[in-house]
Amino acid sequence: MTHPSIECVQLTKNFGTFTALSRLDLKLEGAKCVGFLGPNGAGKTTALKMLTDMIFPSSGECFINGINVREERKKALAEAGVLIESPEIYPSLTPRQALEMVCDLRGVPQNLRRDRIEEVLSEVKMQDWVDKRFGKFSKGMKQRINIAAALVHDPGVVILDEPATGLDPRGMAEVRDIVRGLKRRNRLIFMSSHILQEVTDVCDEVALIDKGKLLFYDTLSNVTSKFADGAPTIDVGLSRPLGDESTLKQVEGLTGVTSCVLLEPKRLRLKFKGGPSAQEQLLASLVELKIGVITLSEPESALEEIYLKQISKGD
């Protein structure tokens, strides 16, 4: 099995004198989920649209599984599942009819169709609406069917443009579950998102762009350690309040710890020096202190801090 891949080479898009995307070089390969981050107007959707031949590059090229999208759109998109800009589906169709049309146009074998359609509809929790017309659907329901349509042929490469748009919190969590499921099946997922929590939860790597330029592309853990003041940060959850000032001093004195802040009575934020082995040692030392450590996690706001820092640099 060849590795699924997405590649942008010097991808540039100008709208008149405005450069929406400037010389984007990005190569994604293998089974993983890559989050595509950036503020509004950064060029995320522009890049994804060029990747799917909805708009054309001013210069540069893009490839899906090594196939040039502009030159061989049909072949390139054959193994890709695409969701761009929350499309509308013809209002007189039902989800079953829409997905059958997708299967028809994608050539999903007849004997697999029924099962695939039922499987994806169940994945997006729309199995009870299978024969109702789209005209009556809410935005979130339509988006669920759009996700199902992107996945019904079991693609190797999945390109999602803000898939959680229009979904309620439960729907967002379900999208994350779907993406995790795709990762387990060794698919390559390239997903733009505004929701940093979503990216932290499901993505292995992140690419951040702003004003049409790629700021960085790396694994999530590298990004967090590289950009967060150079020091890794962890949040420590406790089963009981920390107690007095001396206990806090004890924690601060642990090997490798550079700073310690009590965020809440039962939550500490630590910055420390070193890599995974230092983190392992730190966890052991914290447990030895018997302060009631129950969780050790990357802070939810780490990516947000980095995001805001990097974006504001460009202003």
Binding site: M1, P4, A31, K74, K75, A78, E79, D104, L105, R106, G107, V108, P109, L112, R116, H153, D154, P155, G156, V157, R180, K183, R184, R185, N186, R187, T200, D201, V202, D204, T219, L220, S221, S297, E298
Partner: peptide, 26 residues
């Protein structure tokens, strides 16, 4: 990264799909 990935045996993508010719698609 937060998540421990359960890597399973790679499954072939595409459900055996074969995109029809343009005439069929029309």
């Amino acid at each position: 990264m937060g998540e421990t990935e359960e890597k399973t045996k790679p499954e072939p993508a595409g459900s055996g799909s074969h995109v029809p010719g343009s005439f069929q698609q029309i």
